[in-house]
Nucleic acid binder design. Structure first.
Lengths: 113, 113
DNA sequence: GCTAAATTCAACCAAACGGTTGACGATTCA
DNA sequence: TGAATCGTCAACCGTTTGGTTGAATTTAGC
């Protein structure tokens, strides 16, 4: 099992490249074979294949082969840890303080005021 | 002016490293000088300084020098384009399905159940 | 004015990245 | 069977990254 820290590393790194973000965006419109994904880009198929591998390592993309074609599917769930991390930055005050307080309360560590 | 595509590159790349994410998290608790930020890490000050420079390039961190000390401040606003990009991924499905359904309905292509 | 402290700068290193080309394996189809 | 197609693999190349160490710079304090 991948340590969660590494999961975030892989996810953010996967999104840090414009080619990969374009592939992700394209997959929102539906599953697609590798060659279709590669078409818009002025680079070799092998290069796109590597980008896809990168997305796969991050769990953002899965492939299912049917014949000689590999259909790529976007796995939006894999995006959630990164999304949560970012969202937490904006709200950490409220969320974390509440949870901390609740936990401290459960443990009887909260001093009455 | 930085092209917006590059802005996303820099932001996601900045977040793709655990040291930098830890620095960001630490700065949520308040501004801090470089050496304070460096303390938790088992690496040289120069290394942390480079990480900070990386965050600065992405616009996520600004410095204000007071004397020989540099106070670092988190710039959460710089996170917004990346956050928006990710949020868009999560909702495009619903949106598109709704629009598709509406369009099909308009065309009389929707089968009654 | 001298010394110590807080950072950055510069040079270096190994590893990863993003791309290329060419060979290879699998599959379809005539 | 043989030729074409889809995609990956392998080797290579130049650049970037994340770290090191040591010197340079700027400010503080005695």
């Amino acid at each position: 099992m991948i340590p969660p820290e590494t999961q975030l590393d892989l996810t953010f790194a996967a999104l840090a490249d414009p080619t990969r973000r374009a592939i992700v965006a394209r997959l929102l419109e539906g599953d697609a074979p590798v060659s279709d994904l590669a078409k818009p880009f002025a680079m070799s198929l092998a290069a796109v294949s590597k980008h896809i591998a990168h997305l796969q390592r991050a769990g953002l993309l899965t492939q299912k082969r049917t014949g000689r074609v590999r259909i790529c599917r976007l796995e939006l769930d894999a995006l959630r840890p990164a999304s949560v991390w970012m969202a937490a930055l904006g709200h950490i005050d409220e969320v974390d303080l509440d949870q901390l307080e609740a936990r401290l309360g459960d443990l009887g560590l909260l001093e009455p005021e």
